[in-house]
Each structure stands twice: as structure tokens, then as C-alpha cells.
């Protein structure tokens, strides 16, 4: 029964040639990754393409995974790097950077039913408001909020994914939360 298998067992089986184990990993991670990647790209089509690309990389490079790391860390790192290079490409296309999206840039389009947002339902106004505030956070704060407070990853996993010490993760989480709260109170004024 696949349900009782760990991610690491599944990737080992996949490395041994069992494609069913790969499909199981896809099923386990596709939604988690779309939630992770979407918060950076704010575009559902791009996010879904990027998650597909992540899995293709896993498929093509299955033997690059070594059991010294958790599978989740590995796949988040791949997805995070792809998201980062996508943002870099966009940055080149636009003239402003994410961090320059400051308070004056208050335009927010929560739902465009014809595009991008399939599957997104904001149940409450608060959800929209928080989304707007997260969007305005500088990238390091945004990343840490997504990983810790939306994805609910452990400090240890975040430390590995971002390659920063655990203590730094904790203080950054604290700072990012305060920053988010400050942004929200600004938006509510």
C-alpha cells in the first residue's frame, strides 16, 4: 500500500524503475507545489507549467536524488529555483523589481474568472486582504511566510530549502509576520 510508504521509499522505488511510484509522488506533491509556486508567480497557468517542469526535472534526474536529504526538501528546492529564474526572466521584461512593489502599488486583482485563477476561491474578504498584503511583502519575507505559515513546513525544512541557519529562520519568520501585520494594518487604514 503506497499510503504507508514514505516519500523516500517511493523515490527509491522510482529510481529502481517503478514509474507508479513516480505517479504517487506527483499526486502527493502537485497541490503542495502549486500553492508554493503560485504565491510567487500570481498566475495559475504559469504556476501549473512550473510545477509540471519541476516534475519533469525530477523524472529526468531521478538518480540525482541522494537519500541524505528529505525528498520534500529536494523537490521544493527544484521548484523554488525554477520560480526564482522565472521571476528573474519577468524582472528583465519589466523595469521594476518585486521589492519595488510598495505601498503605492495598491492595484490588486483578486480574481480574473477568465484566466489564471481556476480553482481559487477566496471565501472571505480577509483572504483577499492577506493575499494583497503578502503580494506587497519583499521577497524574503514573502518566501518565509509562504513556507512557514501557508505551507506549514518545519523550521528544519525551511532552513535546508533556503540554506540559512535555523536561528535565522526563526527570527526571519518573526520579522516577516510583524511586517505582514504592519502591511495589513496599513491596508486597513
Amino acid at each position: 500500500m503506497n499510503k504507508t510508504k514514505t516519500d523516500e521509499q517511493l523515490i527509491a522505488e522510482f529510481q529502481g524503475g517503478d514509474d507508479h511510484s513516480f505517479v504517487e509522488l506527483v499526486d502527493r506533491y502537485k497541490d503542495r507545489l502549486i500553492n508554493f509556486v503560485y504565491r510567487f508567480l500570481n498566475d495559475m497557468t504559469d504556476a501549473e507549467d512550473l510545477v509540471q517542469e519541476t516534475f519533469l526535472k525530477v523524472y529526468k534526474n531521478k538518480h540525482a536524488y541522494r537519500e541524505i536529504a528529505k525528498f520534500s526538501t529536494w523537490i521544493y528546492t527544484i521548484a523554488g529555483n525554477l520560480a526564482r529564474s522565472e521571476l528573474r526572466k519577468r524582472k528583465r521584461r519589466k523595469t521594476f523589481t518585486m521589492s519595488q512593489l510598495s505601498y503605492e502599488d495598491n492595484e490588486f486583482t483578486p480574481v480574473d474568472p477568465d484566466k489564471d485563477t481556476e480553482g481559487i476561491v477566496f471565501n472571505t474578504y480577509a483572504g483577499e486582504e492577506i493575499m494583497k498584503a503578502i503580494k506587497q511583502l519583499a521577497e524574503p519575507f514573502k518566501t518565509i511566510i509562504i513556507l512557514r505559515d501557508i505551507q506549514e513546513l518545519s523550521y528544519e525544512d525551511i532552513s535546508t530549502i533556503l540554506d540559512i541557519p535555523m536561528g535565522t529562520v526563526k527570527s526571519r519568520v518573526n520579522r516577516a509576520r510583524l511586517k505582514l501585520q504592519e502591511t495589513l494594518s496599513y491596508l486597513r487604514e
Binding site: 497541490d31 502549486i34 504556476a47 501549473e48 492577506i130 505559515d149
Partner: peptide
């Protein structure tokens, strides 16, 4: 509110 954030799902034909 963050912990109850609306969760996104991939399209049904993703896999």
C-alpha cells in the same frame, strides 16, 4: 487566517 488560507489545486488533468 493564514492557516485557513484557501488552498489551490492543480487541474484534474494535471497528472
Amino acid at each position: 487566517q493564514l492557516h485557513e488560507f484557501p488552498s489551490l489545486t492543480t487541474k484534474p488533468d494535471f497528472t
